[in-house]
């Protein structure tokens, strides 16, 4: 309880997920610095010229197209200038207008494709700028580590959409463990899974297993099972493993996939979770539960045989 009281209640800003990671990236029209943080003001030059990279790519594509049209106009005007007669001049003028019209119509139809190409060229030509920009964003986030943990986490969360490494994840997890987590918070789990055993991640999973079970999915179960011995050795390890087993009980798919894991902690499950598990086993007796069904029956017989909540089901018989 004292650990909970040392945590800070926070109200995190909603996290807007985009289809593609680059949609969050912005570039300054003036100094060409890149940033994933910042609204309109460039963190490098301070000017209000920060725009999404897609918008800059579209501008580049349009600029290229306008240059082509300008070249065509210049050639057309040259032909008119070099004409010997009025008829020749008129003919050159008409042909110029028709050809530029054709070019303009084709350009309008391919604008989307050219914008995507321009975006690819933008990243390719500015690799170092993009990397430097993200590093500067990271430094700006870490500057808030001691003074404003909430702001620091929100900034790291944004940067985490582009930087996928365990150091970023551990920074976020460390900050999350200083917050009083609530059910209504916009939390995530799978993007924060690291490769190695990390107690801070396990603690976070343990908390989510109580307040937001739906975030615990296959990759999380696999992580927990991979480091089960280490987790058992940490503080409140058994409680965390039991809570995760309780989270698995919410779906038949997870119980079936991780039957052995659920079986190991079924005895410690709270009554409501065990009841759900019991009802699931009863409802689908022909599923391949392995030794889980025997263990569930054993626990039922030992602890809940006379419990009225279980009686309705038990009247149908004990056989599985």
């Amino acid at each position: 309880m004292s650990k909970k009281n040392s945590k800070t209640p926070v109200y995190l800003k909603p996290f807007h997920k985009t289809k593609y990671s680059y949609e969050k990236l912005k570039v300054c029209k003036k100094c060409h610095a890149f940033s994933i943080l910042g609204d309109k003001t460039c963190p490098d030059c301070g000017k209000p010229d920060l725009i999404p990279v897609e918008e800059q790519a579209a501008r580049n594509a349009k600029h290229s197209m306008h240059t082509a049209v300008l070249i065509a106009v210049c050639i057309g005007l040259l032909s008119i200038f070099l004409s010997n007669s009025f008829l020749q001049m008129a003919l050159c003028g008409i042909v110029t207008i028709v050809l530029i019209g054709v070019l303009w119509i084709v350009q309008r139809n391919v604008l989307d494709t050219e914008s995507i190409r321009a975006l690819d060229k933008l990243f390719y030509a500015n690799q170092k700028n993009v990397q430097d920009g993200i590093i500067e964003d990271y430094k700006a986030a870490i500057d808030n580590w001691d003074t404003d943990k909430q702001r620091c986490y929100e900034m790291l969360r944004e940067i985490g959409t582009l930087l996928h490494n365990d150091m970023m994840r551990l920074r976020q997890l460390t900050l999350l463990q200083t917050f009083l987590l609530r059910k209504d918070m916009d939390l995530e789990l799978e993007p924060l899974l690291v490769r190695k055993y990390e107690p801070v991640l396990v603690d976070y999973i343990g908390e989510l297993a109580k307040i937001k079970r739906d975030l615990i999915k296959d990759r999380t179960f696999q992580y927990i099972m991979a480091f089960e011995p280490e987790i058992m050795g940490q503080e409140q390890g058994l409680d965390i493993l039991t809570a995760v087993a309780g989270a698995a009980v919410r779906m038949k798919h997870y119980v079936r996939s991780y039957a052995g894991f659920v079986r190991r902690y079924a005895y410690n499950l709270p009554k409501d979770r065990f009841l759900r598990l019991y009802q699931m086993i009863e409802q689908y007796p022909n599923e391949d539960w392995g030794r889980l069904s025997e263990e569930v029956m054993r626990i039922y017989t030992e602890k809940y045989q006379w419990d009225p909540d279980f009686q309705q089901k038990s009247q149908r018989g004990h056989s599985i």
Partner: peptide, 26 residues
């Protein structure tokens, strides 16, 4: 260009690869 058009997923992967290729993968 239209025939050989890139899709946004490829660009996204390339960007992520560029930013994470030198990072700690352990």
């Amino acid at each position: 260009h239209r025939k050989k058009s890139l899709d946004p997923e490829t660009i996204d992967k390339a960007l992520l690869g560029m930013l994470n290729s030198e990072r700690d993968k352990a």
